[in-house]
Write a protein that binds this DNA or RNA. Structure first.
Lengths: 239, 239
DNA sequence: TTATGGATACTAGTATCCAATAATTGCTCG
DNA sequence: CGAGCAATTATTGGATACTAGTATCCATAA
């Protein structure tokens, strides 16, 4: 059963003693959860983690608290801390919220983003084309984040994208699972180009239309995944 | 001088040893920050807090980590933990995000919320009228939350409102500060009624218009506050 | 006025405890 | 052979005491 769904590729850097350990460990665990090295339902032990990371329990607890606030993990008293299953309800609400936010952002951006910001966007998309050619999934996804952040930043609301991060984490879990049969990068790039074209044309309506179409792609493979990996999900129509 | 801007009114319940202490302490500190018992820039000491609450440092650190994730507090290495000043930039981005979300919610609600949900909304507004008569600010604000949650819940996206909580915390800080010269409750209630009227009429456009007008009221006193209490804010045009 | 040095206070992290409880294991008894 | 019970183990939540490193404040001296 070779369903190791993931292309890790992300190096695990050693811990930097000059930076607080808690946030560093959080990032490591976020990576492991997103890439399904740690799978939904799996149980984590504070002692095990602290031993394997070579730190005490304290910073591990710090990290687990943060993960709990982000909804990636849940503490079960006297039993352990388990990786949450992907809650379909909150994925859907996340999609709703993100769509509302991004549509509002892109409308504003069409009205008043500066040409220099649009230039940046075009460069990011070019970089994405290179990433697709080299089949570098990780780089592609990270550029995708950067592009959407730039949309928000171009109207002075980078903070909006930042506060959507926790919401996006849940969507990203789905996204990493779908990497094998994801929407082809070429199509996503075309959609990005369509959005930027609308910005250049200062046409808010078609910018929104293009964005809406783009976002509808993001979770397109979700139903297939739920059928293939029911144990990873929660709140599905399992009845 | 006598700028204790607050009507506390919120009893501080004793700690319940059957529930994890960290989240409880977080709630207590959130209340103190929102009500300006703890003021922006003020420094918290883990030792002091643990002594005054009668617990060890561990659950206090737990609470401070959570507050840090919510952006209400910032750890200064080797110095202390300070209550963040209210960042005008993130308040504005919060407003933007919330407006985008609530406009999308209310449009959907006009299209497909169930009559029973609308009934609930009407009851909440009635309760608000009673709260205004009794000048019970705390109850009014809490009913306000409940109403907006019900808007989202009526289209099955209660989670949206839940994920907006952290954003709303920053806006709430402003809100509590403005209690003295806030928008009169009667006006807010009229706006609520206008929104619900539009839902009953299944008219998404006027629902959105009414909501937009309502939300624009929320931060109306912000500029005045920034002038009166510049120390509480960050990123203002102080130059 | 400026610099220096010391006292102080603070978080970050480590290392051990203890308490309560869920899960598991193994034993006993029918 | 199976059911029920008791002991064991592993877990988080919490408490306590300690070290390290650093920022801050203040008095004193040049």
């Amino acid at each position: 059963m070779g369903d190791s769904v993931v292309t890790p590729g992300i190096a695990e850097k050693a811990l930097d003693p000059n930076e607080a350990l808690g946030p560093q460990i959080k990032r490591i665990l976020v990576q492991r959860i997103l890439t399904n090295v740690l799978r939904p339902g799996e149980r984590l032990s504070e002692n095990e983690l602290s031993a394997s990371l070579g730190v005490s329990r304290q910073p591990v607890r710090d990290a687990l608290i943060r993960l709990g606030e982000a909804g990636l993990v849940r503490a079960l008293p006297q039993r352990g801390t388990e990786v949450t299953r992907i809650d379909l309800q909150s994925v859907d609400s996340g999609r709703f919220l993100r769509e509302a936010a991004e549509l509002a952002v892109i409308r504003e951006a069409a009205l008043r983003s500066k040409p220099s910001a649009i230039k940046t966007m075009e460069q990011i998309v070019s970089a994405q084309e290179r990433a697709v050619k080299q089949e570098d999934h990780a780089a592609f996804l990270s550029l995708d984040d950067e592009l959407h952040f730039t949309f928000a930043a171009s109207i002075g609301h980078g903070d909006v994208w930042r506060t959507l991060q926790n919401v996006k984490l849940q969507m990203d879990r789905v996204r990493y699972l779908s990497l094998p049969d994801a929407t082809p990068g070429k199509l996503l790039i075309q959609q990005h180009k369509a959005i930027i074209r609308a910005l250049n044309a200062r046409d808010p309506d078609s910018a929104q239309t293009a964005m809406r179409e783009h976002l509808s792609e993001l979770l397109s493979s979700l139903p297939r995944l739920v059928r293939k990996l029911p144990d990873y999900f929660d709140g599905s129509a399992s009845a």
